[in-house]
């Protein structure tokens, strides 16, 4: 029994290192845009962390809500204080799988389908989207664009500003990930 366990561990160690095809960045860009009659709302976060493991095709993103910068300081304060409640829910995360196998040895752009779970404002939702993966000079670039509904994430819009704020938000992801080194 013990022997089996040990050999299993050794095997595990070998396989995980051998198949470690992880790519990682701390400076991914996630931006969102919502068009509204009064004024468009736009914010950028250039400190999204992202990791992709091509051994399992798993992909994960984490972003600090406070890292989104807006053109107007007041908008930024309202975003954090009243809408996404950053003190209570500091992060948004995505954890999912890439459906297609990517040939990392061949440079080029691949269309992919990604599905997984997005967590914003403490609420989990399934998300499925098309994206692009570009293999270039040993790095990979992840790109995706999709819409989310604010009410899916229980982000409330008060009645007085209902006309000013759109109920859907377009999210754009762009992350340039070099190979992950421990």
């Amino acid at each position: 029994m013990k022997k089996h366990f040990l050999s299993f561990l050794v095997m595990l160690a070998i396989t995980t290192t051998a198949f470690s095809q992880k790519y990682f960045t701390r400076t991914g860009t996630i931006s969102f845009y919502s068009k509204a009659p009064m004024e468009n709302i736009e914010a950028v976060n250039k400190q999204a962390t992202c990791i992709v493991d091509f051994a399992t095709n798993d992909v994960a993103f984490t972003v600090l809500m406070k890292g989104f910068t807006f053109e107007k300081a007041l908008m930024q304060e309202h975003f954090n204080e009243n809408y996404v409640e950053s003190d209570k829910y500091p992060k948004a995360t995505f954890k999912g799988k890439i459906a297609e196998k990517i040939d990392l040895t061949k440079e080029g752009t691949y269309d992919v389908n990604v599905s997984g779970t997005m967590n914003i404002h403490g609420v989990d939702n399934k998300l499925q989207t098309k994206g692009k993966i570009t293999v270039k000079k040993g790095s990979i670039v992840l790109q995706a664009e999709f819409n989310i509904l604010l009410k899916d994430y229980k982000i409330e819009i008060p009645a007085v500003v209902k006309d000013k704020i759109a109920s859907t938000v377009k999210i754009t992801v762009n992350a340039d990930c070099p190979p992950f080194k421990k």
Binding site: R26, I51, D53, D58, A60, K95
Partner: peptide, 18 residues
């Protein structure tokens, strides 16, 4: 693990607001 690995890398060092 993948998310946890990210957690270790995401530290909030921003200024407190409001």
């Amino acid at each position: 693990d993948l998310l946890k690995e990210l957690d270790k890398e995401t530290k909030d060092s921003s200024n407190v607001s409001a």
